[in-house]
Design a binder for these strands. Structure first.
Lengths: 152, 152
DNA sequence: TATTGTTATACTCTATAACTATA
DNA sequence: TATAGTTATAGAGTATAACAATA
């Protein structure tokens, strides 16, 4: 056994290492699963995530979106173009800087998000049977930490 | 505001929905990040995950590994072939069923896992500066739940 | 006839490099 | 000269379909 738990400054060091290992596996496996269990066909997880960001933030430039999603600018160009082709986002010129563009969601996107939220609830209901309240509480607590971790 | 918090049977329903949304984004973003911040070049996250599974379980058939990693059998065939080419796993005939094979890790794999664990600790150290003890605790608590979620 | 694993092929998502336009 | 975004191209990882061998 390690002495870590008796050393305040480094306590849980080994447990953190184990947690990171478990997180790596879980994130990759869950990611593959989410890729296929899409709430909305024809919309990739990243496209979904971008729409979610726009719903929260109102609007953003392609560069800002690329940084948030951890993709390179050319990837975001493509994602935004696909969303625009589906009528889910609108591109407008930036008011102050003619190099930049402003991406914002359309009314169709709002309707689609609401519809997919209902579909997601079906999936949630099946998940809820497999997780007890304590496990849900742990997920709720960890969600913002995972979000932070993705951007550290 | 919702009444959910006053209804015991469905309490946290909305929060769970929010948590699933946040998890979706976080998992995809973190997944993309892990894809690039590899502890070991030349080894994909899935290959790493398979080695971890073998380290825990000793050995498994390609089919079992495919189910664990949530990939299709042909994908696992390829992954196992790559690991074998790198000398990290060994394939042997199944004792009872001549259709199946048994995959197990080599001594090289064990050495490699130990080496990559040290590299990972460097990454961990930088992460540790960004997360406080309370946040680490939340990650440790959620790791097994995420693992379970991936297989529900 | 069902199951395990493989081969061959194609697709999705993302990255890198080179380019254009604006600051 | 630096920055925002785009175009063109390539690569990694995974899937589907068709097949072989064994149960």
């Amino acid at each position: 056994m390690s002495y870590a738990k008796y050393m305040p400054d480094l306590s849980h060091g080994d447990e953190n290492d184990d947690a990171v290992n478990a997180l790596r596996s879980a994130v990759m496996r869950l990611g593959r699963r989410l890729k296929h269990q899409r709430v909305d066909e024809s919309l990739s997880p990243t496209e979904m995530s971008v729409l979610g960001t726009l719903a929260r933030c109102g609007s953003a430039t392609p560069g800002e979106l690329a940084r948030k999603e951890h993709v390179q600018p050319p990837s975001m160009t493509r994602i935004v173009a696909l969303l625009e082709a589906k009528g889910l986002v609108r591109l407008e010129p930036h008011p102050d800087d003619r190099r930049q563009k402003v991406v914002s969601q359309t009314a169709e996107a709002e309707a689609m998000l609401e519809q997919s939220r209902r579909k997601r609830n079906v999936w949630l209901a099946s998940l809820a049977e497999g997780l007890d309240e304590d496990e849900w509480a742990k997920l709720r607590a960890a969600a913002p930490v995972l979000e932070k971790l993705a951007h550290l």
